[in-house]
Structure formats: structure tokens, C-alpha cells
Design a protein around this nucleic acid. Structure first.
Lengths: 333, 333
DNA sequence: GGTGGTCATTACATCGATGTAATGTGAGGC
DNA sequence: GCCTCACATTACATCGATGTAATGACCACC
């Protein structure tokens, strides 16, 4: 059986509370006593029971990170950053996936209220009007990405501006028939809507007439969905001069299709992405994209979360992460 | 304040224990009582406190998954599968990264003994003779991948056989100067050693003389490290006829370098990988690789883990996952 | 030597859910 | 009508750590 404070206390010849005092360091403990306790802890190989501590303190030291699909490079890189930064600050991270099933966000909220979790970083996708109901006793929540609602603190990249800048960059290379891949039909995800908006804004600035046949919808933002969508589009449309994919993952699917069709990038068509995932620079050709610091996203999310733990009532905060266009070979002229 | 069993009990006019009985379903509860309790739970929006439950039951419902680096596609896909499968079985998953810092494995073990975690799935890398000390009161542990030691249950793909098969497949296309990328200098990771062994076995079968100038070491198994290693090698060596990269990630780095140098794949050199990450089929050209079912890895790992929770004393179990060579364009002849 | 004050230490209660053992309630049989 | 038996329900203790309030020790000063 594992040792408890009681066992340590008995061995050290002190009371359980003193052992606790040694561990927590709030209440002062005299030198000799501390030494005895520490030796006893070492001797018994004592490890505190976090369930008990969590019950007593009301805090578990665990935060949850909810992402649509850990398997995608973007989610994986975010997860990586969050886990690293959280670890530096002494938090553990519980990971949840919301991807396939919209009800998962609800489940998650419920779980989040179960006291095993001190806070939640949520990257919603499908559900914009999501399960984040404020008012009910939820732990602090920070949202990642483009979300229409103002119910919680949020960290994001300005998609409108970034998409606009990217479109302008493509236009500056002289290409005028600029297609976008990833716009959702009808009402799509918030990110799709915003990036499309930035694209249109840029077209206007460039003096290029809007041509809806250049808008290629793509339900899922994955390489295979992108490949299928682009393939189908190319079967019935002429090749555009540039292709702005709303994520790098889609761009990678697109590059694959273009290569298989013998279409040269960037000679026949320029291709750009969004997110700057690790593989973007190793794509063939290397991928021009919107880059931002995922580590910073993680840092800010955790900062907002911990601030919110202290002040549950303050106003909602929104942090915008800097981005920049990274031009690589896929768009060189 | 959050509702507790006591509040529910009071509202339903029963005792706390009855509420508990309703939730757990072990002790029978009469129909009308159950209905009253359920209504009270709904009314109060009751969510059980998992810290308290964990303290009382000694089990938290959380397992930990420790991976070297969540940011790499391989780890991410494994994590994705484990999280999904675990979720299906009612587990939550806490993710830890061990990557950069070897001491993390120790930290992890200590944390694992803190009762917040019912089991641990560990994918060790650097540390083969790792921190997994049996004997001390650890929760059940399952190791993923190539590990030399026999201290815990394990799920793996037979790297020797797979590397051998892949090398044979490359040889069958008529290519004889087959290089490998990812061998570690001196004593490397277990996987590196085993894959190199399979490669050598295949060369012998093919009647190809061993040529150590075809063994390209690469410390980190990442695209950028692979790109650098391959670049350096090509500067001072002739182009091989085939390049077997010990992971897909390295292969993607390699493809990028080859493309930048104007070397055509597969015409000038065939390239193969290992792992069949999602991006392998969207690589340019699509990547021949060793494929295996990551979902099955997750399923088996969880099966071993849950079995081990029941029987702490049984013999160590090892599960080998089926693999197959998937030939794509990067090695077509 | 006695008293006041400081500071380390202790006993006890508590967090919320649940197993144990005891109590209560009802039906059924004589 | 009484007793037995089965079964639902209850009171209480418990898991391990820690806050609270009280105790104890020790020193300094009058």
C-alpha cells in the first residue's frame, strides 16, 4: 500500500499536518523538524495523493485541451505547444477530441464541471454557437480561433487581415485569377467565412472582379477532402493562376493533386496555405503560408486561463496573435 | 456552489447513499425512488466530483499517454487513436511529453504514482533503459514501440521484419545501391538498431555487399534533421539508387531536399519511409512506406492496460501489430 | 519567578462520494 | 394478527490532505 501523510508523520514522529506544512511551505516549519519529515518522505517513497488534495483544495492542477482532431498537424502542433507551456507552469493537460461528434462539446463541458479540471482551452470548429454556456458553474474557458460569440476569453489570429494580406501578396506577383480552397458552402465555419471575407476585400483592393467560380468549397479541411474537391473542380474549370488554400493541410492535398496531373507549381499555378505547419517548409515545392507562433498561442491561452481563475468576473479578453506571410517556393514568380 | 450528492438527496427526500446507488446501479433502487433522484439531479444540474470519487474508489478514470513529441505526425496520430479508443471505453487521457528532457520520464513515473492516473502508456525514445522500475508501486504500464527491456507489457511493430521486407521490396525493383537514413551513430535508439538489422538481413538475402557509406546517420528523426543529414551526405557521396528512410517524417525531409536539388523521384532515386503517416500519401511523389494500423496499436495498448489493472501479477505480454508494405509512386520503377 | 508574547505544532473537522452494517418497510405465510 | 424474510434505504465511517483554532514550548522582560 502506498504511504500517506499519516505514515510519514508516524515515522517522523510528528503530526500529519506538519508533514503537510513541510510540503506546502506556507506555514513555517523549523529546520530540524523539516529535515526529519523530509527524510521520512524519502524513506517511504511518499507521493501525495492528488485526488485527495484535489478534493480538499478544489483544484486538481489539470487543465483540459479540446481540439477537433489531434491527428491533423495543426491540432498536433497546438497541442504540443500547450502541453509544453502548461508543463513549464506546473499544469497537466488532459486532451479531448471534439472532431467527429458535435455532442462531444457538451460532454466535455459536463466533464469540465466535475472538478477534475481547473480550466479548459477549447478550439471549437463545427459548433460556433457552441456548448459554452456561461452562467452555469463552469471552470474558466479560453477559446482558440475564430469564434463568433463573445462568451469567453479568446486567442486568435486575425483571419480576415491575414487572408487579405495573403491574397494581396498573390496579386502582387501578377496573378489575377486567384482561387480559394476551403470556403464552406452556405454557412460555413467561422474561419472559412472570415478568410473568404479577407479574400474578397483584397480582390477589391486589387481591382479584380469577383468570380464565384474561383471559390472552391471543401467540407473538411483535410488533405484528402481538399484533393477530392480540387480534382473535381479542375475537371470542369480552367486552371486558376493562384490557389489560396485556407489551411496548409488542404494545400498539401492540393499540391499532391496538381503534381499528379502534371501541373507545375508555381509555374502553372501558385499555391499558398495558412497555419505554417511544420511540413509546410518541406512540401514540394515548399509552401508559402500565413505563419504565426503556436507557442505564443499556447502562452496567451494559459495566461488568460490563469488570470480567469483569479478573477472570474472580469470582462472578456481577446488576444490577437501576430502573423506574417512567409513566401516560399510555391508562389515564387 | 456546485451541487453535491447531499443537495440532490435533500431535494429528492432520500439519503445521499441512495443517490449514489442510483448513479452506480450496483445496489438496486426502486423505480419511484430512482425517478425522484434522477429528477433532482437534473434539476440541480448535478455533476459528480471526480476528485472525491477518485479518492474513495482509488481509481480516477484517467490514463496517461507519454510521447516523445506531440508535434510530430507519428506521435500525433498515435495520440489521436489512443484518445479516441480510450474515450470509447470511458477513459480520459492525460498527455505528457518526454521528448526534450530525459528527466521527464522520471517525473512522469512519480506523477503516475500520485493516484490521479490509473495507467500509463509510454512511448520511450532516448531512454531504453528507462525509468520504468518495476517493483515500486506503479500503476499498470504499457510500452509502445521498440524497447529492449522486458519490464512491462508492450505493443510494437516488428521493426526488423518490416525493415527487411521494405529493403527486399526496394531490391526487387532492381535497385541495388540502397541507402538508409536514420541509423544512429554508435548505440542508437532501439528502433534504429533493429531497422538497421533488418536492412542488413535483406541485403544479405539479395546478395548485395554491405557498404557502410550507404548508411546515413541522423540524430533526430525529424524532417529538418533528415534534410540536413541527407544534404551533407549528397555533397560528398554519389546518389544511391534507393533511399530507405527510417520514418516517414525523415522521408518527407528527404523528398524536399531531393526536389530542391533537381533529383527526380523515383526516376533518379527511389524513396521509402516507415509509419505511413497521413501525409505519406500526399507527399510529392506519394510515399512508399511501412503501414500499420495505429488504431489497432491504441486498442491493444488499452487492452493490455485494462487487463493489467485486473491482474497485476501475470506474465509480461507482448503484442505485435501487423504491418504491410504500401508501394506508392516514390518507388515505382 | 512570573507573565506576556511569538512561533511551531497539534487535534479536529472538512472536502464529496461510497462501502459496510444496521435499520426500516412491506409482503406473504401460518 | 403475528412473525419471518427479502429487499430498499439509512447512518456512519472512510479515502488522504489540509485549513482552523487551540495547544504547547520557549524566550525575554519586568
Amino acid at each position: 500500500m502506498r504511504a500517506t501523510v499519516k505514515d510519514v508523520a508516524r515515522l517522523a514522529g510528528v503530526s500529519p499536518k506538519t508533514v503537510s506544512n513541510v510540503m506546502n511551505g506556507i506555514v513555517p516549519v523549523s529546520g530540524p523538524t523539516r529535515a526529519k519529515v523530509e527524510q521520512a518522505m524519502a524513506e517511504l517513497d511518499y507521493v501525495p495523493n492528488l485526488s485527495a488534495r484535489g478534493l480538499r483544495n478544489g483544484r486538481s492542477g489539470v487543465i483540459a485541451l479540446a481540439l477537433p482532431d489531434l491527428g491533423t498537424p495543426y491540432s498536433a502542433e497546438i497541442a504540443h505547444s500547450v502541453v509544453e507551456v502548461a508543463h513549464e507552469q506546473g499544469w497537466s493537460v488532459q486532451i479531448e477530441e471534439t472532431g467527429s461528434d458535435p455532442t462531444r462539446e457538451y460532454e466535455l463541458m459536463s466533464r469540465a464541471r466535475s472538478n477534475l479540471i481547473d480550466g479548459l482551452i477549447l478550439n471549437p470548429v463545427v459548433l460556433d454557437e457552441s456548448a459554452v454556456k456561461v452562467g452555469v458553474a463552469l471552470p474558466p474557458v479560453v477559446l482558440l480561433g475564430e469564434v463568433s460569440q463573445k462568451l469567453a476569453d479568446r486567442v486568435w489570429v486575425d483571419s480576415v487581415a491575414a487572408a487579405r494580406d495573403m491574397t494581396l501578396a498573390l496579386g502582387r506577383t501578377g496573378r489575377r485569377r486567384i482561387a480559394v480552397l476551403g470556403a464552406a458552402e452556405g454557412r460555413g465555419s467561422a474561419a472559412a467565412v472570415l478568410r473568404t471575407r479577407g479574400y474578397h476585400a483584397a480582390l477589391k483592393e486589387l481591382g479584380i472582379a469577383r468570380d464565384d467560380s474561383l471559390i472552391i468549397p471543401c467540407e473538411k479541411w483535410s488533405p484528402d477532402a481538399a484533393a477530392k474537391a480540387l480534382s473535381a473542380h479542375l475537371d470542369s474549370h480552367p486552371l486558376p493562376e493562384a490557389l489560396f488554400c485556407f489551411t496548409d493541410s488542404m494545400a498539401i492535398g492540393a499540391l499532391s493533386v496538381l503534381w499528379k496531373r502534371g501541373i507545375r507549381v508555381p509555374d502553372d499555378v501558385a499555391v499558398a496555405g495558412f497555419d505554417d505547419i511544420a511540413d509546410a517548409q518541406f512540401a514540394v515545392p515548399s509552401l508559402t503560408t500565413v505563419s504565426f507562433d503556436k507557442r505564443q498561442v499556447a502562452r496567451e491561452a494559459l495566461r488568460l486561463l490563469t488570470e480567469r481563475m483569479v478573477d472570474r468576473q472580469g470582462p472578456q479578453k481577446v488576444v490577437a496573435i501576430d502573423y506574417r506571410i512567409v513566401e516560399r517556393q510555391s508562389t515564387s514568380s
